[in-house]
Each structure stands twice: as C-alpha cells, then as structure tokens.
Amino acid sequence: MALNEQLNKFQKQQVKCQSTLSDIASSRTSVGPSRSSVPAAISQRPVATAPVRFSNDTVRLTEINNIRKSPVGSQMKRVIQLLFETRQAFTPEQINEACYVDMRANKAVFDSMRNNSKAYFDGRRFSYKATHDVKDKMQLLSLIKKYPDGIAVSDLKDAYPNVLEDLQALKASKAIWLLYSQEDIAYPNDLKCDMKIEDDFKALFRNKDVPTDMLEVEKELLKIGLKPASNTAERRAAEQMLGVPSKSKQKKKKKQEISKRTKLTNAHLPELFQNLNPSGSQN
C-alpha cells in the first residue's frame, strides 16, 4: 500500500508540475507584447518562477509506472523470472515489492499467473513450477533411471539452479550417459551390465566355427527355425542369369588379408590377428 501511495503522489506531483510550467509559459506570453512600456531596469530583472520540486525517487517511480502500464505478458514474464531465479514462494504483495507487478490491482495478470504452466499457486503464494520436481543430484539420478530410453536435457534444465553441473558430475561418475546430437539426451547407465566375462566362456566363443559362406549360414538358421533375411541361392541364380561375373577365390582371399598397417576394430579378439601379412608393413 505504501508503494501505491508513493506512486499516486508522484503522479499528482507530475500533474502539478505540468500545470505550473504551463502557467509560467502563458504568463511569459502575456508579458511579451507590453515589454516596451516597462522601464529597462525592470524589464532586465529575471522573472521569478515558482520552485518546481520533483520527488527524489523519480526514476524508480517512473519505472514502476511503466511496468504497470505494460502488457499482461510482459508483467507475467517479470514475475516468472523472479520465481525462477529465487526459487522461493511469494505472496502477491511480496511480488509487488520485488518486481513492481501489482497483481492485486491487475486481475488479468493474477488470473494468467494462476493458470500458467510454470507457476504454482497454493492459494496464498506463487512459486516456480519446474518440468520435473527434483531438488538435488540424487533425485535427479532417480528420475533419469525411470527413463531407460533417455530423457531430454532441455526438460531438466529448469529443475534447480545447478542441475547442469550435477548432470556432468553424474556423467563423470559413470552413473549416466550424456549423448549429444540434435538434442542432448541423458540415459541411465545400468551397472548390472558391467560384468566380467570368464576366460572359459571367451574360449568357447572364440573356438566356435562359424560358416563363411552365406549359404551355410542360412541353412543353420533354418535348422533352428529362424528365417534368414537374405536368400543367397536365389541371388546367385539371378546373377548368373544376368551374366554377372563371380568374384574369384583369390580376390576374396586377398581382400581378407590383414597387414600391420590395418586399423584393428576387434582388438578384443587377438587370435584373429596372429597371422598378419608381413609384406603389408613394407613401404
């Protein structure tokens, strides 16, 4: 209420000052034509004007006046920014004192804030409403674990002030994965998948003979009831009808040779690279 009284007083002072200035201007105009009949000594005296007193808080009161005359959306933005930065709950009176938006006097702003998706009103105070209600790093991790297919970082940015730092900390501790593409996505890291494979199982896998001919692969798939995605026999028959030459075995063998200069992508299977082509290391 004190702020409203100051603003009203300021507006009255402005009206009074404007009226005073208008009176001064009109008096100068009326004195102008008869100046020749006034003695020179008197005419040279400065015209006494009434002192114009402005409030010492003119700048602030002008700002308040401009804010309250601004559109509803502009005033709402100021309130939401206040709630977002402070993360505190404010009554309409406290909001008025903090950012000069008088929600009690402007019903449109009050009703719009009550229905805004980023504001929570408990019947007395307004507070910021984040996309996800998490307050610290542990709650953030629990939330991400609920989204095995990933959650957008943009949906987490407004959770609390240092949420981005906590995301980086969780990534550094390997609790989550952060993948950057067109949109940053946070994925939970299932530590149950981080297991040690026994050497016997590795040896069993490496000693398993896998057919190199796709015809044999397709036959094995059919034996266990799986339908192959390709039909090599049909494809080769079509190639023969079209006269497409088949690749020679020698060319295939040469293509499969690995030199020491070859970039190895299966380093976890060292036995595949025991017989490197020594000629490949020569320039």
Rank of each mutant, 00 (worst) to 15 (best):
C99Q: 04
C99T: 09
C99A: 07
C99W: 04
Y100H: 14
V101M: 08
V101R: 06
V101D: 08
V101Y: 05
D102M: 06
M103T: 09
R104A: 08
R104E: 13
A105L: 09
A105C: 03
N106W: 02
N106G: 01
N106K: 14
N106I: 09
K107Y: 07
A108Y: 07
A108C: 01
A108Q: 13
V109Y: 07
F110L: 12
D111I: 11
S112F: 03
R114C: 15
R114P: 02
R114N: 10
R114T: 11
N116G: 04
S117N: 14
S117R: 12
S117A: 13
S117I: 13
K118A: 12
K118M: 08
A119Y: 08
A119G: 01
A119V: 15
F121Q: 06
G123N: 12
G123K: 09
G123F: 06
R124G: 05
R125L: 01
F126W: 14
Y128N: 06
Y128H: 10
K129S: 12
K129Y: 06
K129V: 05
K129R: 15
K129P: 06
A130N: 05
A130C: 13
A130Y: 06
T131F: 08
H132Q: 10
D133E: 12
D133G: 01
V134M: 05
K135Q: 09
K135L: 04
K135F: 06
D136T: 01
K137E: 14
K137Y: 00
M138I: 10
M138N: 15
M138V: 13
M138Y: 11
M138W: 05
M138G: 00
Q139F: 00
L140R: 04
L141V: 00
S142C: 09
S142Y: 03
S142D: 14
L143F: 02
K145C: 11
K145R: 14
K146M: 12
Y147V: 01
Y147F: 15
D149Y: 06
D149K: 13
I151S: 05
I151R: 08
I151C: 02
A152D: 14
V153D: 05
V153F: 05
V153R: 14
V153Q: 12
D155Y: 05
L156T: 04
K157H: 03
K157P: 00
D158C: 08
A159N: 04
A159K: 03
P161Y: 11
P161N: 09
P161D: 13
P161I: 04
N162M: 11
N162T: 10
V163N: 08
V163P: 07
L164T: 12
L164G: 00
L164N: 11
L164Y: 10
E165Y: 03
D166A: 03
D166T: 07
Q168R: 08
Q168T: 02
A169G: 00
A169H: 07
K171R: 14
K171T: 11
A172R: 12
A172F: 06
A172G: 01
S173G: 06
K174R: 15
K174D: 15
I176T: 07
I176V: 15
I176H: 07
W177P: 00
L178A: 00
L179Y: 04
Y180P: 00
Y180L: 09
Y180I: 10
Y180H: 08
S181H: 13
